[in-house]
Each structure stands twice: as C-alpha cells, then as structure tokens.
C-alpha cells in the first residue's frame, strides 16, 4: 500500500531528523567513542574507577571547579563507608548556615549533610583567580555538554600543539575538541599527578577516564536505578502488550 510505505518512510525520516544535525559543521573533529562501564542498558558505575575519579577531582580539579549539587552524604553511593564519609566531610572547613551569637559567619568542620564546598565564595572571586575566566561547575558538566562523557574525556586528553598558522590568543591553550579550539584552562592532568591508593598507574588517559566516570555519576547518580526500573517496566509492558493484543483479537473476532 503506497500510504503504508509513505508513512513508514516519513516516520523513519522524522526519527532521524535530530541526528541530521548540521551543527557539527565546525571543523571540530568527531569525538572518539570511549568505552564506559555505565554504557548500555545494563551499564553500572565502576565504583573503583569513580573513587579514583573523586580523588582526581579532589586533588586536581577542586582547586578551581566546584561541584555544587553534591553533598558529602552522596559519596556513600560510591562505596565509601559511613565513617569514611564522615572523615572526608570533616576534613573540609564549611561555613555554618547561621552566624554565631555575635552575628559573624564562621567556619566549622563539614558534616555528611553539608554540600561539598567549592574553591571560591562566588563567581567574581573565581574569575579574579582565573584571568577573568569562570571555571564551570562540574557536578552537571557531563549532562551539560553535547557528547557527554566522551566530550569531557576529549577535552582532558585533547591538548596538542596548535597547527602551523593557528592564531592562538594570549593566555589560551589549543585543544582539539573544544569548540573554536581555544580553551582558557591549562592542561589539568599530567602523568603521575595523583597517586592512586589502589596502585593503578596514574596516566593521563587513566585519570581522565576515572574522573569522567566520577563526573558522570555526579551528574546522574540515579542512572543505575533508572535502568533497573526501566527494565522491569519494559518487561511488564511487553507482557501487557501481548495480553491486550490477544484480548483485542478475541473481542473483535465476533465483530461481524
């Protein structure tokens, strides 16, 4: 039936439409696909990798980047025990929510119920310390960029010498995957920058991989629950579709 073919073709076209994105027309090369433990319907967060990633964040990235949407208590999700979480929290100084009886704000050791504090009290201080550039919050970065984990990994490993004739502005760095190729952040990772407790060699690709695993978890802590629930829901619905189709056929069998 020509109409069936037409409708199928148009449906196909329509579903492809978002992919036919002419946006990647900048000369930014396509991101190399990484393999992530959380890929696919049955993916999970590799806890060991995420813990190493948190270490990378803590020892390297947190000098400039906040993770505003994370609480210390969220770290329990990565496999830290209650005591470990308390220890991590109390190693930070946090501004108390209320002033003291003299009306002054004061610092105190962190508790699990506190947000993980960022390096700067506000955006202006952050800019002042970074030549006017604002280091973005990292707790959402993986969801806030086209390409997600592959993009962040690309940025961290994409620092190269600029090609001949490229006009690199003062204070900027050349990065293969950053749109426009000029990024204000100097390469944050170098081999051996962090010593992992589990003995994993801290190469740049390894650290990048681990910190991206951590950051993906930070942006989507409910991913595993979502996938598990989705599996049950879809299975239930598949059964439901079958039963309802059979019921429909049975009822319609006498429609003559």
């Amino acid at each position: 039936m020509p109409n069936r073919i037409c409708s199928a073709a148009v449906l196909g076209l329509f579903l492809c439409a978002p992919i036919l994105d002419a946006r990647a027309a900048d000369e930014t090369p396509s991101l190399p696909q990484q393999e992530w433990s959380f890929d696919g319907i049955f993916g999970t967060y590799d806890r060991a990798s995420a813990q190493r990633g948190f270490q990378v964040y803590k020892e390297v990235c947190s000098a400039c980047h906040p993770v505003r949407h994370l609480y210390f208590r969220d770290l329990a999700d990565l496999g830290y025990s209650e005591d470990e979480v308390k220890a991590i929290a109390s190693s930070y100084q946090v501004t108390n929510e209320q002033p003291n009886d003299q009306g002054e704000m004061y610092q105190r050791p962190g508790r699990p119920s506190d947000r993980i504090p960022g390096p700067f009290p506000n955006d202006q201080a952050a800019r002042a310390a970074n030549n006017g550039a604002l280091p973005p919050d990292l707790s959402m970065i993986v969801k806030a960029r086209e390409g997600g984990p592959d993009y962040v990994y690309g940025i961290l490993t994409g620092y190269k010498e600029p090609p001949a004739g490229f006009n690199l502005l003062a204070g900027m760095q050349y990065n293969v995957y950053f749109p426009g190729h000029q990024i204000a952040m100097p390469p944050p990772l170098s081999d051996g920058a962090v010593t992992f407790a589990d003995g994993t060699p801290s190469t740049v690709p390894q650290m990048a991989h681990d910190v991206v695993t951590f950051l993906t978890w930070a942006a989507e802590p409910n991913l595993e629950l979502r996938h598990r629930t989705g599996f049950k829901v879809l299975l239930f619905l598949l059964v439901a579709v079958g039963v309802f189709y059979a019921a429909k056929r049975k009822i319609w069998a006498t429609a003559h």
């Binding site: 239930f236 059964v239 439901a240 039963v243 309802f244 059979a246 019921a247 049975k250 009822i251």
Partner: peptide
C-alpha cells in the same frame, strides 16, 4: 480469561 488477565495486568 484473557479479559481477566488484561484487567489484572491493568
């Protein structure tokens, strides 16, 4: 039976 099953699933 089918209708019962369908209702139960629903």
């Amino acid at each position: 039976f089918l209708i019962l099953t369908a209702t139960a699933i629903g």
